[in-house]
Design a binder for these strands. Structure first.
Lengths: 178, 178
DNA sequence: CGAATTCTGTAGTGATCGATACATAAAGGG
DNA sequence: CCCTTTATGTATCGATCACTACAGAATTCG
């Protein structure tokens, strides 16, 4: 997972992957089938562990709490000292060759899924009367995820954790934004 | 340039590149030296043409005008119907293998340069008294570029122009954010 | 303990990568 | 008009890609 995270899908060679996993190519193919399936499993694990902050954030009692937890989790996960900088769901395959289109589409769906979950959570906040009834929960979710993806790109560019957290704080000082 | 824009640096093969340019590999190597130099030239052209909105935006009379023009230009350029979706400066090489580290670092510097230009422009706005003196122009620039990079990721994921422009409008409705 | 079965490492598959050597075609100068 | 020079296309280079065949090691079960 760390290799895919750091180098992306196409930038991670089988040799590097198997060496990091401590197994040989044969064992990897017996266990996963091919490189794309291995990436799918790695993405599942990434979702469950480093990106677990998303599911936890959705359980925050208020919409602002959700947004705050999402951005704080993004900042933390994209700037872990011993892990690659950035978000695997973003830099795993943002652009790819024809052979990597399957994984690229997988990550598009992964990001879309994150957006949809946040949108449903904000819809609930509207339904419950926490957010004004004229609020567009989809737009709000797109706004928060856009900030998160932007933070991920900045982290991949080497921007530090403190500065990114300041950006998150600044953005959410005005809430709801619309 | 379009091939690099669409497939990224490592996802663009020499065969695809030369076919799109209408020349043979020999002519390409005689003219540019190698693939990395070709990418540098393509990035220069990208900066001068599709990304020209940045330089124009910096000449807007107000800081809000600058931010508005940057985000509007980002939305427009990342969702051109006949061009690849997204920003070449982001998806060109966000993650890469070891052999692509040079280009990855080049794009990190490219994004950092964009941030620095915006920061200087906002510093001028502070000096001229347009923005409150306690404003941190660097933080403001990081905020705007974060939104721009986030928009680029969303565009690469297939989000449409109208929705992205709504996000930009929503974000800048509160200005300055800090 | 011994035979069958599962698993793992080594070596090598064709395909494609970026990059070149060589031969041919076009262009420039006397 | 011919020779020199520059530029281009073809065919191929070694390296590496994802992937697999085969053989030996470990394990399981009678």
């Amino acid at each position: 997972m760390l290799v895919f995270w750091r180098h992306g899908y196409e930038g991670a060679s089988l040799a590097t992957l198997t060496e990091a996993m401590g197994i040989s190519t044969t064992s990897m193919y017996a266990a996963f089938g091919n490189k794309e399936e291995l990436f799918r499993k790695a993405l599942e694990r990434y979702t469950e562990v480093p990106s677990a902050y998303l599911a936890e954030a959705l359980e925050e009692p208020t919409a602002l709490g959700v947004a705050t937890a999402i951005l704080a989790g993004t900042v933390r996960t994209t700037t872990l000292p011993d892990n690659p900088s950035g978000c695997m769901g973003v830099q795993g395959a943002l652009a790819a060759s024809d052979s990597g289109r399957g994984v690229r589409d997988l990550l598009v769906a992964w990001r879309q899924n994150g957006y949809a979950q946040v949108g449903e959570r904000f819809q609930r906040a509207v339904d419950e009367g926490e957010l004004p009834p004229e609020t567009d929960p989809g737009l709000l979710a797109r706004y928060v995820t856009t900030l998160a993806f932007g933070i991920a790109v900045q982290a991949a560019s080497g921007v530090g954790r403190a500065e990114l957290q300041e950006i998150a704080d600044t953005a959410l000082r005005n809430w709801p934004p619309a």
